[in-house]
Amino acid sequence: MTYVFLAATAFVIAGAYWIGITQIPLLGFGDPLGPKLLPSFLAAALVAVGCALLVEGRSIAGLKTDFTRFSTFVRTREFGLIAAVTCWTALYFTAFAYLGYLLSTSLFLTVLMATAHRGNRLVAVTVAISFSVGSYLLFALLFAVPLPRGILPF
């Protein structure tokens, strides 16, 4: 399963990369090899690695155990949580420029810490807010890092 998955990924990436190669514009000058040589070689190498992965992972029994492992993993609580954390982070990044650093970070940290911390909720929320304010003061004001201000006036 692992190997088959990786091999399939290799083939898909090689294919997409190949389409990218056909779109490289060419100039008729100098450089005898041109900008397409290494990419073409890499695409071919990736296909070769994909085939090697298939050969390495060809045992049917291994496939089955891997598949059961994977399907149980997808149904576990951990997987759901990882997916949720990833989506929440994606949302944070999307809102980052619009809401501004201070607001988006406070929100992001408060929710995440309140859920993930196993101790006192109040501690988690306090840490979240004070870290957001403190890091903003340190980086945006002292080091002049251009963190987005967003909809807040400061």
């Binding site: 944070y92 650093y101 992001f108 940290l109 993930a116 196993r118 988690a124 890092v145």
Partner: peptide
């Protein structure tokens, strides 16, 4: 630092680093 606090902090600090 408790894991539930440390991990979100790392995510935020990494964001500052990349955005800077």
């Amino acid at each position: 630092i408790p894991t539930g606090i440390l991990l979100p902090l790392i995510l935020t600090i990494a964001t500052i680093g990349v955005f800077s």
